[in-house]
Nucleic acid binder design. Structure first.
Lengths: 110, 110
DNA sequence: GGCTTTTATCGTAATATTACGATAATAAAA
DNA sequence: TTTTATTATCGTAATATTACGATAAAAGCC
C-alpha cells in the first residue's frame, strides 16, 4: 500500500485498532490462553505448545509484550513470561467501552 | 510469509483472531462509530467522513460486511449501510468471553 | 576456560493488507 | 435514451505481516 494513513484518524480509533491488531493472530490468542493457565511463568514450554518455529513464537511474544499484555524476564537459559493482568484488564475495558459506546446509539433501522 | 499456518490452531482461536483482524484498522473502527450514530442508513456520506479514497472505503465496508457487522443494500446511485446489531452483540460477547475466560485463571505470579 | 540449553535477533522469502486510479455497473433523473 | 450520481470491482504498487533457518546472546554447568 502506498503511505500509511493512520495519522488521519483519531488517537482513540488508532489505539483500539492496534489493540485488535495484536489480537489478530491465532497464535497470540493461544499464547494468552496458555499463559493464563499457568501459575508459574515457566514459559519455555510455550514454544512446544504452539505449532510454530521457535523464532516465530518469539516474535509473537514480542508483539504481545509491545502492547504490554505480557511481561517477560529472561535469564539466560530460562525465561519467565506471564500475563500482565492490569494491562489485560485495560485492554478488555477499552474494547468493552467501544462496543458499549456503539450500543448507546442503538436505533434499529434495517 | 511462507504457507499460512492458521489450520494448526483451534477453530475458536482462529475465529476470534479473524474478528480482531476486521477491527484492526482505524478506518473500520471509525466507520462503525459513524454508522452507529445515524438513525437512517444514508451511507453515501460515509465516504466523505472517512479520509480515504472512495475505492478504499468501499473495500473496508466489504470487510465489515464479510464479518456480518454491517449490512448493505445498494440501489443504483444510493446505498444503505447500517450496523447489524445482532451480529455486533455476538462479536462483543465472544471478545468479552475471551477476556473473562482468561480472568477465571487469574493467579498473580509476577 | 569451553559446553549446553534456552531465547532473542537478523536476514530473507512468501504472503497479506492497504490504498488508489480507472473502469464498470446500477438505477434514477433529464 | 442519454446523462448523472453513486458505489463496486479490477489492476496494481507500496508496505506490513508472517514464518523460519541461521546465528548471536545469556547464564548456568562441566
Amino acid at each position: 500500500m502506498p503511505k500509511s494513513k493512520t495519522h488521519l484518524f483519531g488517537r482513540k480509533d488508532v489505539d483500539l485498532s492496534e489493540v485488535c491488531k495484536v489480537l489478530a493472530h491465532p497464535a497470540r490468542i493461544a499464547i494468552l490462553k496458555e499463559l493464563s493457565k499457568r501459575r508459574e511463568c515457566v514459559c519455555g514450554e510455550i514454544v512446544n505448545l504452539i505449532p510454530l518455529a521457535q523464532a516465530t513464537v518469539s516474535q509473537h511474544l514480542k508483539e504481545l509484550k509491545s502492547l504490554g499484555l505480557i511481561t517477560g524476564e529472561i535469564e539466560g537459559p530460562k525465561s519467565c513470561y506471564c500475563i500482565h493482568w492490569k494491562r489485560l484488564e485495560e485492554v478488555a475495558d477499552s474494547l468493552g467501552e467501544f462496543f458499549d459506546h456503539l450500543k448507546t446509539n442503538y436505533k434499529q433501522c434495517c
